[in-house]
Design a protein around this nucleic acid. Sequence first.
DNA 1: CTATAATTTAGACCGAGGTCGAAATAGGGA
DNA 2: TCCCTATTTCGACCTCGGTCTAAATTATAG
Lengths: 126, 126
Amino acid sequence: MTATTAQCCAPIAREPLREDEAAELAGLLKAVADPVRLRLLSMIGSHAGGEACVCDLTDAFDLTAPTISHHLKVLRTAGLIDGERRGTWVYYRIIPEVVNRLGALFTPPAEPARSSGPVDVELITA
Amino acid sequence: MTATTAQCCAPIAREPLREDEAAELAGLLKAVADPVRLRLLSMIGSHAGGEACVCDLTDAFDLTAPTISHHLKVLRTAGLIDGERRGTWVYYRIIPEVVNRLGALFTPPAEPARSSGPVDVELITA
DNA sequence: CTATAATTTAGACCGAGGTCGAAATAGGGA
DNA sequence: TCCCTATTTCGACCTCGGTCTAAATTATAG
């Protein structure tokens, strides 16, 4: 590997996205660019056992069950979650590889483990 | 791959997002959840000098100048880019802190160099 | 001051998408 | 079997947002 790519910044800012990459990533991002779906994703991912059934999710929203089901379908179609029916309930779980892919887009490459200087942690406050 | 990744996952999967956090983040994500805006962001960020003028961007698309201007405004309103007029041209640059914030949402914490046990980082919100 | 170029604003069009109520599908239990 | 609950599908409504043309704004040049 050509080791020293001058690690300036996140992949998105390192070289221009191709049109097809942009289209594909935009599809993923559209799936999470909704407050309800963000919360659903977060609730599923942080739920005990790594999975949550629809019944665990619906109550947190002032939305009807069909609407929640619609949002879950959007997330599943995008490949961000996977659902499995076990008996009466359907359980959803996050697919971490796909979530990580989103993060990698906007995240500067991690510093190589051994650091020769203070680690730069930046806390962004709104 | 050993299972040594102690920290379970990305922030979004660690604990449920609050409603207001979700709304704010969804706003940011909506701004990038478009193929044209993704490419604009990428072209600006990867352009020599860290900035690009509108004239550098327009030609890459089959879109009219007003449409490009609209997308740039969306990105700027979201806080992802900043624009400055210098003479005839307007130059845009990425605001990396905001881009990184998006990445951090979906990215598992970097492995701490040394640790003897799970590190408990607690963010205390007022 | 006038002409020209770069960029943004305004307004309109139209398809995409979030929401709902009603109905369909799938399982479990009396 | 029939019914009850959980979840999804369907169809409709209405808002949001991407795109365009036309016009306004800002700056430079002559």
